[in-house]
């Protein structure tokens, strides 16, 4: 029963762990650089989901003040801090993916390939 409570009470973390493992698999096993970038994006999404899931409180509502809910009791509203942090992290993630694509385009223009093994051969 205790183990069942543990598994059911942390169920969002299991999905996040699966996403982190998929992201790490994409970054380490795959040889194509674009697939590595996709793995990195999945890893980033998992970290963002972890932060958002840490903001939640039972029986609380979104952090926008309503008239019939008092602000004096912080249990009425969920934690606004992870939302504000992840809001900026998402847009910065888009910008860094743009930089990564720029580097990939330059690599392709110089070496005409994006495969890791061929690149290591060509760079010798």
């Amino acid at each position: 029963m205790n183990l069942f409570d543990f598994i059911a009470g942390h169920y969002d973390y299991w999905f996040i762990i699966i996403l982190l493992a998929i992201g790490l698999y994409g970054m380490t096993v795959k040889k194509n650089l674009v697939k590595k970038l996709i793995g990195m994006t999945i890893f980033q999404a998992a970290v963002i989901l972890f932060y958002i899931s840490s903001a939640i409180k039972a029986d609380a509502t979104v952090p926008i003040i309503m008239e019939n809910l008092s602000v004096d009791n912080p249990a009425n509203y969920i934690n606004p801090l992870p939302h504000a942090l992840m809001l900026t992290a998402i847009v910065v993630g888009v910008a860094t993916v743009g930089v990564a694509f720029t580097l990939l385009i330059l690599i392709y223009k110089n070496y005409k390939t994006l495969d890791e093994n061929e690149l290591l051969e060509l760079m010798k």
Binding site: P63, I64, I65, Y77, P80, L81, H83, A84, L87, T88
Partner: peptide
Amino acid sequence: PNMVTSVL
């Protein structure tokens, strides 16, 4: 009223 905007 939006706390996220206020924090941000």
